[in-house]
Lab assay of single mutants.
Amino acid sequence: EPLWIRPDAPSRCTWQLGRPASESPHHHTAPAKSPKILPDILKKIGDTPMVRINKIGKKFGLKCELLAKCEFFNAGGSVKDRISLRMIEDAERDGTLKPGDTIIEPTSGNTGIGLALAAAVRGYRCIIVMPEKMSSEKVDVLRALGAEIVRTPTNARFDSPESHVGVAWRLKNEIPNSHILDQYRNASNPLAHYDTTADEILQQCDGKLDMLVASVGTGGTITGIARKLKEKCPGCRIIGVDPEGSILAEPEELNQTEQTTYEVEGIGYDFIPTVLDRTVVDKWFKSNDEEAFTFARMLIAQEGLLCGGSAGSTVAVAVKAAQELQEGQRCVVILPDSVRNYMTKFLSDRWMLQKGFLKEEDLTEKKPWWWHLRVQELGLSAPLTVLPTITCGHTIEILREKGFDQAPVVDEAGVILGMVTLGNMLSSLLAGKVQPSDQVGKVIYKQFKQIRLTDTLGRLSHILEMDHFALVVHEQIQYHSTGKSSQRQMVFGVVTAIDLLNFVAAQERDQK
């Protein structure tokens, strides 16, 4: 057995438009009618409502009807409940999964919650491996369901041993009777949507819809739904939504950006999952974080739909894509998950301010006199920076000697690579993860907040409520011999709460 199987392995699926269902090699399930009293909570997966979006479509000038398939009504709160249950049931049916076995899954959280929910009911041990950027709410729900959680670096490539995929496979090879159901490759993922989600949409719309818009992560949702719609409703256009920084969209030119990270969760990847059939997507749109969270908040405030950030991405694209539809036509959007997962993220004004998705003037509360002053007023001194090749031991000596707790790590040209902190280095040394002679590049981390000289002290204040420091950066445009230009970030300084307090105190003292 291989040590790991690539999540982007070539698909062996034989589905073709027009091929009889009787030739399918898979076990198919028909939607079942729910009894009045459910035998367990797993029976509350599927049969989610279709809700008309009344205000947002009109606000953006849509002539067509805009409908939302509300997947956050599933038992675990997301569309991923469907595939989690289906993968477990299919693994039980073919004898792969037996009582007492362990389920391991690399996930952005929602599939993990679905699997942990099913594992709690069915009696399996469950280990979820997820990147650090995923919300604390997801972690809390997983723990409450009895799952064990392993976190991995957000910026690790999918084929790196440190990625959530790599760590999951390492655990599988170490733990007896453990299984990775593997949402990236498992046919049960798109089949769950082909058999149930798509049929529900067709039934709820009486077979009449002209466009379907869905955000894409593993691709199982859009693949399964689109294949069924292509068979039953061939005139329906399928629109895929991919965040900026991901590479799922086609044509490839759409993916060209210097951005590699994004805040919206559960969609987009740096590889093409095996289950994603991009041939059934008629057109791709890219979405960005700001519009995703703005539209998610709009869905909550104006439509009462308590959905997550990827739902915002989907609707932001839908109001663009559906401009081509006329009166009497219908566009369906998939709202994948609930706001429950993001209470401390985009639902929080403070978080939105820190990330730059909300401006101070958007909030009406009274601010102190210094709130709208610029960061450049602080008069920061030149920063202490270190090269990635310097040793951890030497870096600790320098920081202690100069009285700093942290320093930016830059390359020879001064471009920011990340940050090192005294606390992080000492804990890594004590844990045996690094040696004093190791290069400081081994303990770089990139989960820090950046701020510009033109940003306000109010925004800085919000950042420092949650973080010990902020890195002050400025952009530099560099022209190359080819005539092309590129933008790079340079370090201007490091600012802490002490710097802000000293500035405010000094100004008030001078005024007296």
Rank of each mutant, 00 (worst) to 15 (best):
V440G: 10
S485G: 07
V440F: 07
D467A: 12
F448V: 12
I463W: 05
S381Y: 08
G418L: 04
V473F: 13
L347H: 02
V472F: 09
I238A: 02
D362L: 10
T456I: 08
F503A: 09
I477R: 10
D242V: 02
Y479S: 12
E252C: 05
T456M: 13
G418A: 10
Q511C: 10
Q323N: 05
T260I: 13
M298T: 15
E303C: 02
Y479P: 02
G312R: 07
T314G: 12
C392E: 02
E465F: 04
V386N: 02
A413C: 12
Q302L: 09
A413M: 13
T395A: 12
D455F: 05
L399Q: 02
G414C: 11
L426D: 05
E377F: 02
G418N: 08
E397V: 09
L254T: 15
L471H: 02
F295D: 02
S427I: 14
F293W: 02
E397S: 05
V386L: 12
S486Y: 11
P436D: 13
M419L: 12
Y269T: 09
E401H: 12
I239D: 02
Q376A: 02
G304F: 02
A301T: 02
W351A: 02
E263A: 11
D455L: 09
P251T: 12
A431N: 15
K355M: 11
N341F: 02
D455Y: 11
M298Q: 02
P243M: 09
K320G: 09
H462W: 15
F404N: 02
P408N: 02
Q489V: 13
E324W: 08
P383M: 14
Y262L: 05
D270C: 05
P251D: 02
L399F: 14
Q478A: 10
M298W: 09
A413S: 13
S310V: 02
T496K: 09
G418C: 09
I239T: 08
W370M: 02
Q450Y: 02
A301K: 02
E291F: 09
S428F: 11
T257L: 10
R452M: 14
S381A: 15
L325D: 02
E291P: 05
K366F: 07
Q326D: 08
L276W: 02
A470Y: 02
T482N: 13
S481F: 13
R330V: 11
Q354W: 13
K512S: 15
L254R: 08
D499L: 05
W370Q: 15
S287F: 08
K367I: 11
T344M: 05
A506D: 06
F271H: 02
A322T: 05
E360A: 12
Q406S: 02
E291T: 09
M298V: 13
T344I: 02
T456L: 11
S481P: 02
V275R: 04
G418T: 09
S427C: 09
V319I: 10
V281L: 14
F503M: 14
Y262A: 05
G328Y: 06
D289W: 06
Q476L: 13
L500K: 02
T395M: 07
Y479R: 15
E265P: 04
V264P: 02
T391M: 12
L380N: 02
E303S: 08
R488Q: 14
E253V: 11
T344A: 11
G268S: 02
P408Q: 11
S461D: 06
D289S: 02
Q406F: 02
R374T: 11
L299V: 15
V415C: 13
I390F: 02
Y342W: 06
T482R: 14
P243T: 14
T260A: 07
G493S: 14
P408R: 02
T364R: 08
K367W: 12
G432R: 10
Q354N: 13
R297S: 07
V275I: 06
G483N: 02
P336A: 04
L429E: 02
S486W: 09
H468W: 02
D270I: 05
L460I: 08
H394R: 06
M425L: 12
E377S: 11
I247K: 10
V386S: 08
T395K: 13
Q478S: 13
F346L: 09
F357W: 08
D467V: 09
L384V: 11
E291C: 13
M352F: 02
A249N: 02
L384N: 12
H462Q: 12
K512C: 13
M298L: 12
A296K: 05
Y479W: 02
L353V: 12
L426N: 09
M298Y: 14
S461R: 06
K402V: 11
D405S: 07
V495W: 10
E465A: 09
Q323R: 13
D405G: 06
D289A: 04
R340A: 02
Q256D: 07
L335N: 08
